[in-house]
Every structure is written in structure tokens, then in C-alpha cells.
Design a protein around this nucleic acid. Structure first.
Lengths: 339, 339
DNA sequence: CTGTTAGCGCCTTCAA
DNA sequence: TTGAAGGCGCTAACAG
């Protein structure tokens, strides 16, 4: 079954290719009612479907964008990508999703491939070490939006959670609930959300007059965190609370507590960044700082498509868009849950 | 900054376009060492990047596949899509992800758009009512693979969990733990996994000599399930166990139990289809039937790309691929957890 | 109001 | 071993 082309339709309707093309692109202005009808019918009977590739070649526009994220398996990424897809679909764009796993080589490779595919723009969760690549994208006038992480000194719209602010609320809440010594667990401080949260933790602790205890702080590979947990959760050391910098770093904590204490001790508060699915159903339910993932994804797509449609990056007064976190206060951090 | 084309490279290297094209496609066989080197250098200095769109137009191949799923927010879909993406990336393919939300109109629209974009094949979570569309895909020789749901009477490779088998294991396990009266909750029986599980439930109950109590069975919109839950979880009615047909239908159950009993009563077993994130950390931890999502995604991609590469659907002896579920036995279904 | 023409950037015979 | 020419399917002037 051969593909039917514009030419076929033109033949069938006894008009020329360009007339059909006009019709397809809604340039009816000067078209005879009869021609129009004939074309319409030919299209229907031949089951003609335009070839978007050919059109793209001509128009230098693919109505496709590339999204390069760290890992779709992360809940936040999933939600963000869904929001992006929804927005794009509404605007007639398609989304090619790539998982770079925070590997800058892989990221680079993906960007190259997507450029070859002539995508109209990029939404990227930038890795730490690919500034060159990003700069070249800018040089080539590719519309780009960054999500979740900041890359300093590039005029690229960037959307992130306002980490310091959210951290401050978290600390304040913990303090209000009577927690004095607060432990902190995070993956290595390689990307901006982690450093921002960590810095925010330190400064907020200070601001609230709480003592920062270095031996209650862990910022290294989670797979090696057991001895840290063992140390801080031993008699005499027990912190009042533990603050986890994202949903992944919560896992070893819960794991350890479950194994060692058959649950969360009454006198321990838990709070984590990132919303956890079914957090309400934990015992105790877990207090979280939730990112507005849908909002952020939608906004990212909107900014990108804006750039694409006004072809070229428009100058923005501010390239940074901070989003407010939401503190979901649940049992795990409430004083009254524990006396 | 104009895009540099094959022509530019040819000019720069003082050869013709076709020679450069040869070079790009690895047809070195008869190429002079010097020409080769000149081309190499020109490409480098001009930073030439081939235009995949132009190539696609000529070759009628986009190395892009379309994936149409119900909803990426579902954990299983996320995992499957990640597996698909990984496999495709390894094979040099790109993935366009679409969320049809089990809406056959939306699905149709997506398929049309992806056809226009000339994707090389489809992986689809078919909705109930789009047989026409699927048939036309087959007629047009599009490689297609179905995931998770069966559409009868179409020769399309289909991958699903072996629902009846998994259900049988679940029932057997529950029975072994001393559960006699088992409640069942499911969304409306619109797609094959739901009907298969439901049918499996009925027949397995029978086979194990357990009484099926109609008033303990709910197969309707989850948003309306409260009165059902209220009824079965009232004194005198309480079932020994409740079996949830997927992760979504577990939510109202946990929700109700949490609100009403401040947790899961000692004497109630819970078992759900679909793995639940952090299920181990629930109190009690939840017993689940896990789908091998990665395996299924990988296999789906493999089957599809196989079809694409051997262009045209190859005849298979059997178009059905059943995958074994994994029963993750945790506290929520263990007798000893409760006496 | 409609047809002719000339590409978009690349690949692919076929000659040279 | 390399080049010239034609065409993939569509769009966009410019004529007519």
C-alpha cells in the first residue's frame, strides 16, 4: 500500500499541487468553492495524510521539542513531564523524552541527536558539567528552558523550587514542634538544589538559634549511609529530628528505622523534601515539602513555546522563576503525635 | 548563524555533495585517503551536523517510535516507558511519549499525529474502543506492539501480565494465611487486565473452595466507593481480607481505614495488584503482586524494533507474551502479624 | 482564483 | 574513485 501524496490528491481532484497545499494550510481566501469541495472529497476518498517530515524540511520547524531529564522514575520528573506533555499537546507540539541519568556525556549525546532531528527547542534538567554544550545551544539560537537546576551566567530561563525559602519553613516548623537537634541527610552536593538546600539548612538553623552539629550531617552517597545512620540513631546520640533533602535520601532512613526499631520511634521527627506517594498512609504519616511539579512543568513548556513562536529568545527582565514549596504537615513531625 | 549543510562541507572540502554523503554513510570502500581526511576536517571546522529530517524524507525512516500509554503518572507506566526508552536509545531510536488517558478519541488523535510525523512504529496501551484505528495501522503495515491490554482478533504482538495466574497465587496465599471471606475492589471492568483479574478472582475463589460473597465485591468508579467500604468494614460484616485489583483502587481502602480505624485493623489482610512505592514502609507493610514492568517494556521495544528492522510484521507463532507476576509477601497479609 | 517553478537537505543510481 | 542529476513530499513566491 503506497503512501498517498499531495500529488495524488491533486491529480484526483484535477488541480495542481499548490492548490491542494493552499487548501491544507487554510489559505481559502481566494479559492473557489467548487475546487475546495473537490479537494476535500479527494482527500477523503484517498485517505490522504500529509507528511509532516516533508513539511518540516521545508519550513524548518518540526513542532517537536526535546526534554532531557535526569530520570523519569523520579516522581517529580514524572509529574513535570506529564505537565509538559499536556501543555505541548494542547499547542500541537510533540515531546521526545530522554533520560540522561545526570550523566553529562549522555546528555550531550542526546542533545546532539535531538539537534539532528531539528527539534524546535529544549527543556533540560542540566547536569553539572555541560556548560559548553549549553552555550553552543544559545549560540545557535535554540530556545532552551532549564528546570530544577541553575547554571550560573547563562541567559536561559530557569525554573526551580525556592529551596532556601522552603528549607526555612521546614526548620521553623521543626523548631516550633520542639526539635532542637536536627540531623540532615543528602546525596552528594553536586547540583544546585542540593547545595541550595544544604546552605539553606545551615543558615536557617543559625537564624533560628539552633546548633549545627556536624556529626548529624551527611552529604554523601546514599549507599554508604548506613554507618552514619547507625551512629546517629544510637543511644545517647539520637537527634530530635531528621531532615531528608529529597525523596531518595528518605529511603535509607526509613529502611534503617524499620529494620532497627520496627518503625519510627515516638521521639523522632521526620521531614523530607519532595512529596512521597501515599505519604499519608505511612505510620506515622510523613511530613513533606512538596514541589509544585505540574505548575513548573506547565510553565516551562509555556516559556519554551513562547520562545519558539516568537522565534528567538526574547529578552526577559529576569531569567529566574522561583516556585513556592508546600509544607505538608503530617504526623511524623508533630509534637502532639508523640507525647 | 546559518545552518551548515552538506553542500557547505562539499564546497569547503572541494568535493561534491555525494562524496560527502558517501563518507557520512560509511561507504569508504573506494574513497581516497586524502579526500576522506579533507572531508573529516571540513566537517570539524564547520561543525557540520547532518539534518535528520532531510535524511528521513529520503529514506522514509525516522528512527522514532511513538508510545501511547494511558497515563505516565501510573508507576507501572513510568517504569515501562523508562525501559522502552533505554532500549530504544541503545538502538538509536527516539521515543515520542503520549498520554491518552484511556480516552479513545485522544488516542486516535495521537496516532494520526504520529503517523503524520512518520514514526517507524507504535507501542500502545490500547483503549477499549479503537479497533478500527488499530486495523488501519495494520493495513498500512505499521509495526505495532500492544502492552498491558489485549485486543482480540488482531495479529498484533501483545504483552501482558498473566493475570489469572497471578490472581490464583494471591488467593492461594490469602487462603493459606487463614483468610476465608475475601473482599474485592476494582475500577470498572472496561479493559482486559481488570476483567481478567476479576474473572480470575471468581474462578480462583471457587477452585479454592472459598465462598464468593457478592456484597464484598465492588467494580465501579473508585470515587464512589466510600459507601461500599463503609458497609463492608462495619461490625458484623468485616471480611478477613481485601484484595485490590490495582494500585489506584488501594487508595480509597487505605484512606478509609486510616480515617476510620487510625490504621489497618489487626484482623484484616490486605493485598494489592501492582507494586506500591515504599510499600515496605507502610505499617503494616503491604503485600503486592508486582508486574515485571522493566522486563515488559524492554521486550515490547525489542519486538517493535525487530519488526521495524525486518521491515514488515514477521509472522509469529504466537502473538501473545504473558509475563509472570511476583508476589511480594509482606506483613499486611501474614497471619502471624496479627495474633 | 489557480498553476508553474524552484527549492528545503540529503541520498542514490549512473556515468565519467 | 568521484561527480552530476534526479527526486523524497511539501511550500511559497510569482505568474497567468
Amino acid at each position: 500500500m503506497k503512501k498517498v501524496t499531495l500529488q495524488d490528491v491533486a491529480d484526483h481532484a484535477a488541480v495542481s499541487k499548490s492548490t491542494v497545499s493552499q487548501y491544507l494550510n487554510g489559505r481559502y481566501t481566494y479559492m473557489g468553492e467548487r475546487t475546495k469541495r473537490r479537494i476535500e472529497e479527494s482527500i477523503r476518498t484517498l485517505q490522504y495524510q500529509p507528511n509532516a517530515i516533508a513539511r518540516s524540511l521545508k519550513q524548518k520547524k518540526t513542532t517537536t521539542i526535546g526534554v532531557i531529564m535526569a530520570n523519569i522514575l523520579h516522581r517529580v520528573s514524572t509529574q513535570t513531564s506529564r505537565a509538559i506533555e499536556d501543555f505541548c499537546h494542547a499547542k500541537g507540539y510533540h515531546v521526545i523524552l530522554c533520560n540522561a541519568d545526570d550523566d553529562s556525556e549522555k546528555e550531550k549525546q542526546y542533545i546532539e541527536m535531538l539537534k539532528a532531528k531539528q527539534v524546535d527547542g529544549f527543556i533540560i534538567y542540566p547536569t553539572a558539567s555541560n556548560e559548553e554544550m549549553y552555550k553552543s545551544l544559545l549560540d545557535e539560537k535554540y530556545p532552551v528552558v532549564f528546570l530544577d537546576r541553575k547554571v550560573k551566567a547563562l541567559s536561559i530561563p530557569t525554573l526551580t523550587l525556592r529551596n532556601e525559602e522552603a528549607m526555612d519553613w521546614a526548620i521553623e516548623h521543626l523548631k516550633n514542634q520542639g526539635n532542637e537537634s536536627i540531623a540532615y541527610i543528602s546525596s552528594p552536593l553536586t547540583i544546585s538544589p542540593r547545595t541550595e538546600r544544604y546552605d539553606g539548612f545551615l543558615s536557617s538553623m543559625k537564624r533560628h538559634g539552633l546548633t549545627i552539629q556536624q556529626d548529624l550531617i551527611y552529604t554523601d552517597k546514599l549507599s554508604d549511609s548506613t554507618s552514619f545512620l547507625k551512629k546517629i540513631f544510637s543511644p545517647g546520640h539520637f537527634p530530635d529530628a531528621i531532615l531528608s533533602s529529597n525523596d531518595r535520601s528518605l529511603v535509607p532512613v526509613l529502611d534503617y528505622l524499620k529494620k532497627t526499631f520496627k518503625g519510627v520511634p515516638e521521639h523522632l521527627s521526620i521531614l523530607t523534601f519532595d512529596e512521597v506517594e501515599y505519604a499519608e498512609f505511612f505510620q506515622p504519616s510523613i511530613t513533606t515539602v512538596e514541589q509544585p511539579a505540574f505548575e513548573m512543568g506547565t510553565k516551562a513548556a509555556e516559556l519554551l513555546i513562547d520562545q519558539i513562536d516568537h522565534d528567538g529568545l526574547q529578552h526577559l527582565d529576569d531569567y529566574y522563576f522561583g516556585f513556592q514549596g508546600k509544607l505538608n504537615i503530617r504526623e511524623s513531625s508533630l509534637k502532639r503525635g508523640r507525647d
